[in-house]
């Protein structure tokens, strides 16, 4: 990692955090939308954003009611999603970029939340109904943040000279 990538990643993390702070109370109808999740598409444009989004999410999760659990697992899922989004850029299909964050957060985060609120930490009596109700609300919130806000944003950025050098 060179200094430029490091600082860019750090600033993206800073942006993620600032957006989380500024738009904290935004919710569209019943769905909580973390506006900052729109940044999870940036890895489609530059690798520096993989670390940036991971770190932003890592620190932002200190606010989470799940505290340390979310700090560990939530940000790890974001890191994996960001890397997958980065890999997806080879396909050159920009509309695919939101799929990893939507799926990993929607299915992954709800998975550990369900496990934490189930009887035993075992898969044999996994509470499917609870899982589906949590994951659907996360899926919808995440889809709004990525497809409605994130996608127009990165389409715009992909035309900037600044990012064109990167791709």
């Amino acid at each position: 990692m060179n200094t430029k990538s490091l600082v860019r990643g750090a600033i993206i993390a800073g942006l993620y955090l600032s957006l989380t702070l500024i738009f904290a109370p935004i919710s569209f109808k019943a769905f909580q939308v973390r506006v900052s999740e729109s940044l999870t598409l940036l890895p489609f444009l530059t690798f520096d954003a993989v670390w940036g989004v991971f770190i932003g999410c890592f620190i932002a999760n200190f606010f989470s009611p799940f505290g340390f659990i979310d700090v560990l697992f939530g940000s790890l899922l974001t890191l994996i999603a960001a890397y997958l989004t980065f890999l997806l850029r080879k396909t050159k299909k920009i509309y695919l970029a939101p799929i990893p964050p939507i799926l990993l957060n929607g299915l992954g985060v709800s998975f550990y939340i369900t496990l934490l609120s189930s009887n035993e930490m075992s898969l044999s009596n996994f509470n499917l109904k609870l899982y589906l109700s949590i994951s659907s609300s996360i899926l919808i919130g995440e889809s709004i943040a990525t497809y409605l806000i994130g996608l127009p944003l990165i389409i715009y950025f992909s035309k900037l000279k600044f990012f064109k050098e990167e791709i």
Binding site: L6, A10, I11, G14, I22, W51, G56
Partner: peptide
């Protein structure tokens, strides 16, 4: 590197929030 990035990110929050404002 990650720790350095965290430090920079935390340092820049007030600046970025002000800018956004």
């Amino acid at each position: 590197e990650i720790i350095m990035m965290i430090t920079i990110a935390l340092r820049f929050i007030p600046v970025l929030v002000e800018e956004a404002d």
